[in-house]
Write a protein that binds this DNA or RNA. Structure first.
Ligand SMILES: [Mn+2]
Ligand SMILES: [Mn+2]
Ligand SMILES: [Mn+2]
Ligand SMILES: [Mn+2]
Lengths: 147, 147
DNA sequence: CTCAAAGTGTAGCCAAGGCTACATTGTGTA
DNA sequence: TACACAATGTAGCCTTGGCTACACTTTGAG
């Protein structure tokens, strides 16, 4: 033991809540890759007609090797359907997630823009923030976006 | 080649910007652990008088093993000073970072609260969002926080 | 039709950050 | 003071997600 006499100083943020918040953030990080991939696949499918490994690599800023391995995991988890040398398709589950992500992304960007943030910085910040916005906060952001 | 005739459909979000945003988000993730650790060490030092491995583990929601290995990295990177079986101290660099993080954390929480988000959800969301807020956005959030 | 180049796949490396199981050290209490 | 137990440290496992280097497949230009 180390501080048996100290009167258990009142915690500013109780450790339990703090720990739970950080656990939640880590959970969000775990789904973040999936979200960015399905969003990119949906965007590319819409604008290019199909999503290919090279397009994804360029768009995600990683090598095609990383894309390949990640797609294997996303297929295992049921978000995408991949066949060798073919274009990449979203499953119904993947499409649903993609649409949620596109929506969240748009809401966050619009909100930042309405605060006076430049297009470019809004895009950069949104790319990280979008994964950590709860439904409550998302609704509040939409509500407080001055068009 | 795969679509030589298609007129290179106008990209909604150009891949280059998209890729740069995602790279930035990944850079932020790399510093995220350091930020949460130094912030926790500063908080614990203030409220308890010192920061010990078990306290950090409880507060961060991980095992003491994870804390130990991470502290070794943070020491290597110059943020903390660790000696076996002793309390953990921030270096001047670490303390500066901790203060920035505490400030950013407070600004984000206050902003969310001012949007009507509950204390608990504000804490949870802020724990993730704080690492992806640029100086411009941080200033805008502070400016738009209705006290 | 051919074949070079683009696209795709894979082997194997690395670091971060989780974990369990077990060994070692420190210390307050009996 | 001894020693039980809390705290700390360490060995070794796993997954994710980066990478380079190299091999294989597809395809459109000539
Ligand atoms: Mn993103
Ligand atoms: Mn996005
Ligand atoms: Mn955080
Ligand atoms: Mn924080």
């Amino acid at each position: 033991m180390k501080k048996p006499l100290r009167p258990a100083a009142k915690a500013v943020r109780p450790s339990a809540l703090q720990a739970e918040s950080l656990r939640q953030t880590r959970r969000e990080h775990a789904s973040e890759t999936a979200e960015d991939y399905v969003e990119a696949i949906a965007d590319l499918s819409a604008s290019q007609g199909e999503a290919r490994v090279v397009d994804l690599a360029r768009r995600l800023g990683v090598t095609h090797v990383t894309v390949n391995r990640t797609l294997a995991r996303l297929q295992r988890e049921g978000f995408v359907s991949v066949q060798p040398y073919r274009a990449i398709f979203l499953t119904p589950t993947g499409l649903k997630l993609a649409e949620e992500c596109q929506h969240r992304h748009r809401v966050v960007v619009a909100f930042l823009r309405s605060l006076g943030i430049s297009e470019k910085i809004a895009e950069i910040d949104a790319e990280g923030i979008e994964h950590h916005v709860s439904p409550e906060t998302l609704a509040a952001l939409a509500r407080h976006t001055h068009r």
